[in-house]
Structures are given as C-alpha cells and as structure tokens.
C-alpha cells in the first residue's frame, strides 16, 4: 500500500515537474484579465471553467478590473457609474452567462442596456431580451443617475440579471487609476 502511494506521489511529481503555482496565485493573475480571454480560457481545464463560481475570484476580479465588474447575485455590488465608467469606451459583447449589462459611451452620455436570458424563445435556444431601459432618467444630474442605478439594482434583486460586464475596447494604463 505504501509503495503504491509513493508511486502515485512520484507520478504526480513527474507530471508537475515545473513548479506549479497555487490556485490562489493563479486566481490573482486571472482576475486582472478582461471577460473575453476569461471566457476563452474556460477551455484550459475544468477548474478554469468554474472560475466565476468562486467568490474569492469574483472578489479579486471586482477589485482589479476597475471597468470590468463581474457581479454575482449573492455579492453585494455597487457600481460607481460616474467615476469608473466615464471617459471610457465600452462595447457590448454578444453573450454572457446570465445577465448582461451593456455600456456604450455616446458623447458625454452613458448609455446602458440590461438584457436577460430567455430560453425557449427561438427553437429552444437561449437568446437575449432587452429589459426596457429607463431612458427617462437623465445622466446629466445626480438625481437621474441615482434613479438609474436604483433601477439596475432592482433588476438584480429580482433575479432577472445575475452578472454584469463592462467591456472595455481600449486599454489605457494611465486611465486605470482614476
């Protein structure tokens, strides 16, 4: 029995000859990535596929990507639309896991759209449906922005949307620390 254990350990060590980073550090590295490569790297291995289920990873991702917040239903979230998103270019991605919030900059105004996943709409394929946005609230005054944020939070509390992405088109190092 002992020799079998030794053999197994030996085999494990052989297959991991190069120093493996602990998951904690790998999560830390990956948390600096934007959504697109993160979704691509779901194919790397099963652990990387389940990244978004780990609260520790979600927390790190939220900390490290000032403009790319992935928020789980259970995680309290607060998005500062004014500081983090303003003056940045956002573009929508076409698909995400649960819910999706598009931000697209249009001049000085910040546009957004909350989408929800509907199953059985087209040949039983999942597709996205836009939740009517509250365009009556203006971005120009504090009150409008506050109402807008409240309405987004409302969708999340209702369980309509689970994750939000802010997707950045260009990266500008100097801009990251705003």
């Amino acid at each position: 029995m002992d020799s079998m254990c030794t053999k197994l350990i030996q085999r494990y060590e052989d297959s991991h000859s190069r120093s493996l980073l602990p998951d904690e550090i790998v999560f830390n590295i990956l948390s600096f990535l934007p959504p697109r490569p993160l979704y691509r790297f779901k194919c790397v291995c099963k652990l990387w596929n389940t990244l978004f289920l780990h609260p520790f990873f979600l927390y790190l991702h939220y900390l490290h990507s000032p403009c790319s917040a992935l928020v789980d239903e259970d995680v309290r979230f607060f998005i500062d639309l004014d500081i983090k998103c303003r003056r940045r270019g956002f573009r929508p991605i076409c698909q995400s896991s649960h819910g999706l919030l598009f931000f697209q900059e249009d001049g000085k105004k910040l546009g957004y759209e909350v989408l929800t996943l509907e199953i059985g709409h087209l040949n039983n394929c999942p597709c996205w449906r836009a939740i009517p946005s509250n365009s009556k609230y203006s971005d120009d005054d504090d009150d409008g922005r506050r109402k807008k944020r409240k309405s987004i939070e409302h969708f999340f509390r209702m369980g309509v949307a689970y994750c939000i992405w802010f997707v950045v088109t260009e990266k500008d190092d100097d801009d990251l620390m705003i």
Partner: peptide, 26 residues
Amino acid sequence: CQSIADRINNKSVRAVREIFNISNDY
C-alpha cells in the same frame, strides 16, 4: 499579476496550458 495577465491576454488556450503547466482534464 497584471503583467502576466497582459502577456497571456491574447494567447491561445493551448499556449496557456503549456505556460501554466496545466494538463487538459477535458
């Protein structure tokens, strides 16, 4: 972490497996 993330951002899945020495369990 930021610099490693930047360097793997555009890598293929296969290259990332090699770099991190991860075996494909799919």
